[in-house]
Nucleic acid binder design. Structure first.
Lengths: 225, 225
DNA sequence: CTTGATTTTTGGAGTTACTCCAACTTTAAT
DNA sequence: ATTAAAGTTGGAGTAACTCCAAAAATCAAG
């Protein structure tokens, strides 16, 4: 869903060998996702703080040590997003002359289709992000990575250098808009369409947030969801 | 400086009595700031992770228990910002018909004047925020509170309701711009003027970030600072 | 100034997330 | 089957935090 970007941080147990499509590698992915599923289930049932790593490990039938082989911290088990690499690839494969907002909409549209079957889990994660301060905090920090991605895309699209201050501001601002949309989506428990929310949010950025009082511009359209 | 907003979270030791301007209350403020100063000094000298609460407590001549009386977590000792209440008050006292960006500029200008004598410490904090992931994360989360403040101001100024989605996006986006400016300020170690950076950042938001490629608008002005 | 109530500080005992590491088990490749 | 690499595990340790009850400082009133 392009929110968190935990993947690069992950340990990839021990040394780090393991060739790309190897059987071993796929098995690890399985284990990772299984641990995450177990953890989220327990978190939902008993709460995040109340659930200890020991409990998760027991329920997932691994040792606590192994847990830490897969996730550096308790937070990361929530943060991990198997869809992230997919989302990133989609983004990078967009034509470079396409406006960012259009690309964003398309990527989101596709993505929503892809993860429909996991929606329950994704919303559970969302709730955790809203409720548990440490998780919220980590999420915002991970968003920095998304900002860098957006920055690159913007740089390509505008021909400006990626260290241009104004451009960096633009990137962060776009990311902020997306975050607020995601947050609203989580808050509504998925009842609003993420694509639509993101669209509206980015539109605000695009047209310029009106900070000078009197121009009471009309709120756009309305929802359907 | 309006970045972090730790104050409301703080424990106000034990029960919570202590009348407003009381001698006791002022003494506690003293202690709190002393602990913070000590901690920051040690962090700068030995690094954040390397410094334990025990060491801070020892150096500040209090017991570890007392440390936790003043700050709920190790992070909070960095996050705490004595100027925050001041900044908030300044903000709220601005005329309600003044455009937000103007108000912001004025508040910052005043504020920079006020904390000039502490600049060393403030920059040390800044460095920590940039370097230590947990602190960075917390900072972004605290920024949510700033967002709420901005949201209120915007609501007043535009006559829209504070739960309006577009307005929330606007608030977040403004905050994001300010954050990026602060970050740049920290990164430059205070060599760029915070006021100017914030001005430029908010200008980007105001005029709308250009996401559609070809309009290569000129970068504004240039820097001096 | 003394007494008594209130607030603050402190120490101690306990929990949990996490680290480090060496030993053991499994898997893949010859 | 043998070996080397990758993955799993247990154990011992650290440091952040919580809870609580006792000691110490502070304040208010007589």
């Amino acid at each position: 869903m392009g929110l968190a970007r935990a993947a690069p941080t992950l340990p990839s147990p021990k040394g780090g060998g393991a060739k790309k499509g190897g059987l071993r590698e796929r098995k690890k992915q399985k284990t990772r996702e299984s641990i995450q599923r177990t953890a989220l289930r327990l978190f939902e049932k008993h709460g995040y703080e109340q659930t200890t790593i020991e409990q998760i490990a027991a329920a997932a039938e691994i040792s606590p040590s192994t847990f830490f082989n897969y996730f550096p911290t308790k937070e990361d088990v929530v943060l991990f997003d198997a869809y992230d690499p997919v989302a990133i690839r989609m983004f990078l494969e967009r034509p470079k002359d396409e406006p960012l907002n259009v690309g964003l909409r398309e990527v989101l549209k596709n993505l929503v289709g892809v993860f429909e079957r996991d929606e329950r889990m994704i919303l559970a994660r969302g709730r955790l992000f809203l409720e548990v301060p440490e998780l919220r905090a980590r999420l915002w920090d991970e968003a920095e990575r998304t900002q860098l991605l957006i920055l690159d895309l913007l740089a390509e699209r505008t021909g400006r250098r990626p260290d241009d201050f104004e451009l960096r501001v633009a990137a962060r601002v776009v990311m902020a808009a997306i975050l607020e949309a995601s947050k609203e989506w989580m808050r509504s428990n998925g009842r609003h369409s993420l694509v639509e929310l993101a669209d509206r949010a980015v539109a605000v950025v695009e047209s310029g947030a009106h900070l000078r009082a009197p121009t009471v511009k009309r709120a756009r359209k309305a929802r359907r969801s």
